[in-house]
Design a protein around this nucleic acid. Sequence first.
DNA 1: TGGTATTATTGTATATTTTACAATATATTC
DNA 2: GAATATATTGTAAAATATACAATAATACCA
Lengths: 230, 230
Amino acid sequence: MDPNLIPFFKAAVSVDNVVFGFDQSGLKVLLIYRGADPYRNCWALPGDLISLDSDLSSSAEKVLQDLTGLDKVYMEQIHTFGKVDRHPFGRVFTVAYFALIKIEDYNIHPSSWAEEAAWFPISEIPDLPFDHNEILLFAKDQLKTKIRRQPIGFELLPKYFTLTELQKLYESILETEFDVRNFRKKILSMDFITDTGLKQSCVTHRPAKLFKYNAKKYSKISSSDFAFDL
Amino acid sequence: MDPNLIPFFKAAVSVDNVVFGFDQSGLKVLLIYRGADPYRNCWALPGDLISLDSDLSSSAEKVLQDLTGLDKVYMEQIHTFGKVDRHPFGRVFTVAYFALIKIEDYNIHPSSWAEEAAWFPISEIPDLPFDHNEILLFAKDQLKTKIRRQPIGFELLPKYFTLTELQKLYESILETEFDVRNFRKKILSMDFITDTGLKQSCVTHRPAKLFKYNAKKYSKISSSDFAFDL
DNA sequence: TGGTATTATTGTATATTTTACAATATATTC
DNA sequence: GAATATATTGTAAAATATACAATAATACCA
């Protein structure tokens, strides 16, 4: 393949990941402390330039893999950002992805381009370099839209979870509150979680039942039939 | 701005537009007959390589403007495609957009890269070069999702339209059929079309009332409140 | 062991929305 | 004015969403 067959202007292309996690304190985003110019020593979205021989989606997966050690993570492309001056060093298009990870599985593996990585509550994101704040907005919005239509919330929860945790998750993402009874009726009627028969332990109050996500049941349902309007 | 500040691999970036139109025979897509290699003399999506000084969205708009002469068209980014071998001449990322145009406004302006352009019914799209068939699938899917949540269908209709035309539009895009009475109740209850008091003329049967889209009313409603589930 | 603190769990009545279904109205043409 | 063609409209039943608070299960402590 002769790259010169395309005699036009070329640009660098990068991927940037918005990595969401969730714990009892709410929805969080994983940011890295940049160890390279530009914007060295700033908190930013984890991302990297794409190399010649990587597909787009593989590149996004690799960034996440390098950073978290996690594989087979739920990822989805959000949007591509291509303003002329979005990068101070030249023309760089960036393709943004969001990823949902189980925060308990995450182990810090700062990468070549990251000195450090940390979770930031979604409501306390600092000013980010490039157009990363805009990217984050897109990601939040897309997550909101998506979770109302598809059962992707489980990607953020441990294998076993309580209905209260699930409700808090939906409430954090959708930035609203639900009636406990109505939430449970709705989510149970959708028939993609199963009572494991297990219960919480080591809690100082009535232990909650533990549920698990039932992917098989869902896979029979067309995506347009699922909605979370409460 | 010194392009050499980014010493990494660079690639060409293009935009490809999926241009939708609608008339009484249904939903259509505008394809061009390629006048340049590769795939010269094939029907394909209209697109072009991005130049140094154009923002991403401006590039997509320019492709459409060159091709149709139309300005201020509803466009939305769909997805970016970046498989290593998607272009035979080298690494080319393409950012796909869809556009909704009023087919009656369209005038043929074949471009430097197009010898000819023509509307193809959505059900009769030929084999397309590159990954253009895949792009088209994404576009159809996104249009389907979008029209259920936002009143964008009007972008495909003339200023004045009948409820029957509107119903046919929704049916074409969603690939389903609605009950006449229920469709009308639903769409009228959403309160973004207005009866103009005018009627169809030159028809050989009872003339239908003409409606128009009422953008102002809609603009007060948050996008998540609108849904077209019938 | 019984009381307290804490969170989990559950049901029902009402309002709203969706669905299913067919007769009548208005124009043109002959 | 009869025939043809499409436009327009209502109602009852079913399903879904909403509003709302009392009881249950555990740990802890006195």
